[in-house]
Nucleic acid binder design. Structure first.
Lengths: 214, 214
DNA sequence: TGTAATGTTTACCAATCGGTCAAATTATCC
DNA sequence: GGATAATTTGACCGATTGGTAAACATTACA
């Protein structure tokens, strides 16, 4: 006799793991494009290749699917920042942070867009996480950067806005991908654009544009 | 006897101009948060303070409202880039471009988010404009930047990615406003954050982080 | 192999969706 | 003021929405 819901059982069966994975994969496809409100369970069900009630057997509500996705993305999304090392030297740390974030924009654009969608809507589902864990992590890394500036290793600058600028420039290649490709034109829209972006961004952050003052 | 639709008449009445303005204002509120699919005519009608059939008297479909908004935003959004002057000197041109874009992020965040929403969804309504007028304008300005680099006035760098980086860093303060405020905390979330951002970004682009190599 | 638990589907529900219609109301202009 | 055009609304429509109920199918395990 149909026990509660799969999510409530103690041990997860093989089928549960597999199907939940398929569902979240499909949900990521849909949510990342249309946002929470603009996505429908039917869309997700179709992408996942199963019936709507079957989806709802694994995730009771649309919100539960979204929640599960957001939780997963939030964690992995901050990996590169966590790896930011206070003991490394500024140049290589900043260079590799940029590179890692760019790789994520290239390899996980849907995750980036899911997050962006949530931000655009005012973060109704994750505001607590932003104010809590995210802020704490950024505060910690900002302190590292501040110390570098204090020691004269890099220019004095606002560490928070420095972090914002790395986030925005790198995520741009995932979130605004259509625009980037349209502007670059067909001949420069290959995967090489990420290499070009990496080269440009590393130069920008390390040396700036070296504008000749006059 | 009810003539076609207002939009089809030759001369627009005072009421038409007023109401269309009110509707577009409300539509901007709603579309910029929830995107096209996630927004409903009822929501817009409620914000606009009029009945749904009354909205549809001025704009026949939800798509027509969105279209009208997008057209308006697309035009004004590129003003700063159009003002980019080939004859000016690189430093002041880049500085003032950054400043203007930041002012727009501050003063017209809904317009920025409407555009961002459209990009996230793959630009289904504006892809032609991206490939046409937008690309042309960027090509033109990229050529200016390339000439500056050629003349040794600024560092050699990819002009397209330079433009992308100015777009992304400045629009970030509109599109990711919630995140920026959450991370900065209450004490630094006042309007002063735009001043801080301007100072940081001008430094970044002009001088870079001046990382000490070793 | 039998049976209980797990998984899947068809049929359905009330609410909301984008949009229409005709009637009622208001503004405009002679 | 009256005729006419412009504006506004309540009632309504079929389609789609998130979600449920219950019957049916499959799996796991003793």
């Amino acid at each position: 006799m149909a026990i509660p819901r799969a999510a409530k059982t103690q041990r997860r069966t093989r089928i549960q793991e597999e199907k939940e994975e398929i569902i979240l994969e499909a949900a990521l496809d849909v949510f990342s494009v249309s946002g929470f409100r603009g996505s429908t369970i039917d869309q997700i069900a179709e992408v996942a290749g199963m019936s709507k009630p079957n989806l709802l057997y694994y995730f009771r509500t649309k919100e539960a699917m979204h929640r599960a996705l957001i939780d997963r993305v939030l964690f992995t999304w901050l990996e590169p920042l966590r790896a930011f090392d206070a003991n490394g030297n500024p140049e290589s740390e900043i260079r590799s942070y940029i590179r890692r974030k760019l790789e994520m924009a290239r390899d996980f654009p849907r995750e980036s867009r899911l997050f962006a969608n949530e931000m655009l809507q005012g973060a109704p589902h994750v505001e607590d996480e932003l104010r809590g864990p995210l802020k704490s992590l950024v505060d910690e890394k900002a302190e590292v950067i501040r110390a570098w500036a204090q020691a004269g290793k890099i220019a004095r600058c606002d560490p928070y806005h420095l972090i914002f600028s790395i986030w925005s420039t790198t995520q741009h290649y995932a979130d605004f991908d259509v625009q980037v490709r349209a502007v670059l034109g067909q001949e420069h829209s290959g995967e090489g654009r990420f290499e070009d972006a990496a080269r440009y961004l590393e130069q920008l952050f390390v040396d700036g544009l070296r504008i000749r003052h006059n």
